[in-house]
């Protein structure tokens, strides 16, 4: 085909650079505009607050990015969050040391994610269906364990002070004035960036999503890669669950409802292709921050919640459309 070599010459034009950093440019514009309108927004305290709010969606969206890059999707993140949080809370109420209970919850989350991965690979279910199944099942299990009721006053039930400190630290702690959840978010960002860009596993994730047939023929274990990716997503959901129950000091089976949608929105805003193979974790963090800034800013500006959703939808639509033009 004669024309294909031709199109490459304009490959690195300025428009493609804008495309590459569209999410960041949008983020900066948003911050500037809201800062001008709302003096409250531009305080240091609010920025820390905003960062903490971004943590929940951010951690989940990182896992979601990996899943989507591998040409999958994980609808079960919210339910996985709830189920592992409830497991942790139940263990604490039964007298299990909090640190151990939290570790068990993280392992549980990882395994719950791996189950989705198994359904996708060994069960040959489409990711959407597979995680729709686990999403429904996990939510149900969380309800069964708690009998549908919240488990409250967790910290009071922790016997040793060391364990109590650890439990509170995760959600409420500070280090040099920075909330621990925000530190976790930044740490996770660094780890995900490294894994996706600098390790062989990262390459396999991209290759799987880009062209699984081709990747398989050069020896990439597609099944293993996909299972790990869903397990990572499960782990991140569980971690988010722990931060949430630490902050709330209670665990409800309805936790994390609808979180999958915010996470997917953040990934899409960040320019990751929904059919896998293309995307960046830095895009995702920009997407997460855009959503957080919008939420925070609109609350400060006292925009009615009904309008908030519509405005969010418009922002997502515009961002994704402008990304497609590249």
């Amino acid at each position: 085909m004669g024309n294909t070599a031709a199109t490459t010459l304009n490959k690195k034009s300025w428009t493609s650079y804008i495309g590459e950093y569209a999410a960041f440019i949008a983020l900066v514009l948003l911050v500037v505009v809201i800062s001008i309108i709302s003096p409250e927004f531009r305080t240091a305290g609010n920025f820390l607050n905003l960062l903490r709010q971004a943590t929940f969606n951010g951690l989940i969206a990182f896992g979601m990015t990996c899943v989507i890059l591998s040409d999958g999707i994980d609808l079960s993140v919210g339910s996985t969050l709830a189920l592992s949080a409830v497991i942790c809370a139940e263990l604490i109420m039964k007298g299990c040391p909090a640190i151990l209970a939290m570790l068990v919850a993280l392992v549980a989350g990882t395994l719950l994610g791996a189950v989705s991965g198994l359904l996708v690979t060994k069960g040959r279910l489409q990711p959407f269906i597979a995680t729709l199944v686990t999403m429904t099942a996990y939510r149900g299990l969380a309800m069964i364990i708690t009998d549908g009721k919240p488990i409250s006053r967790l910290a009071d039930n922790i016997a040793s002070s060391g364990n109590e400190f650890a439990f509170k630290l995760v959600g409420k702690g500070n280090f040099c004035g920075i909330p621990i959840p925000a530190i976790l978010l930044i740490f996770a960002l660094v780890v995900f960036f490294f894994v996706l860009n600098k390790t062989t596993f990262g390459r396999k994730v991209y290759a799987t999503g880009s062209n699984a047939k081709c990747a398989k023929l050069v020896g990439v274990n597609i099944t293993k890669t996909k299972i790990i990716v869903y397990a990572i997503s499960g782990f991140m959901s569980a971690l988010t669950g722990l931060i949430l129950i630490s902050r709330l000091d209670s665990a409800q089976p309805t936790l994390g409802d609808g979180y999958e949608l915010d996470a997917i929105a953040a990934v899409a805003l960040g320019g990751t292709s929904m059919s896998g193979g293309r995307g960046k974790i830095t895009g995702t963090i920009a997407g997460v921050l855009i959503i957080a800034v919008l939420n925070n800013g609109m609350n400060l500006l006292e925009v009615s919640t009904y309008y908030q959703d519509v405005i969010k939808a418009v922002v997502i639509l515009v961002a994704v459309l402008s990304d497609r033009k590249r």
Partner: peptide, 25 residues
């Protein structure tokens, strides 16, 4: 080929062992 990926990505994918140590590229 991974058509949407670079020449480098494609050559690397079949030779990950060669260009990495302990899984780090």
């Amino acid at each position: 080929l991974l058509l949407e990926k670079s020449i480098s990505d494609n050559i690397s994918l079949a030779n990950l062992g060669k260009i990495s140590s302990k899984s780090v590229i």
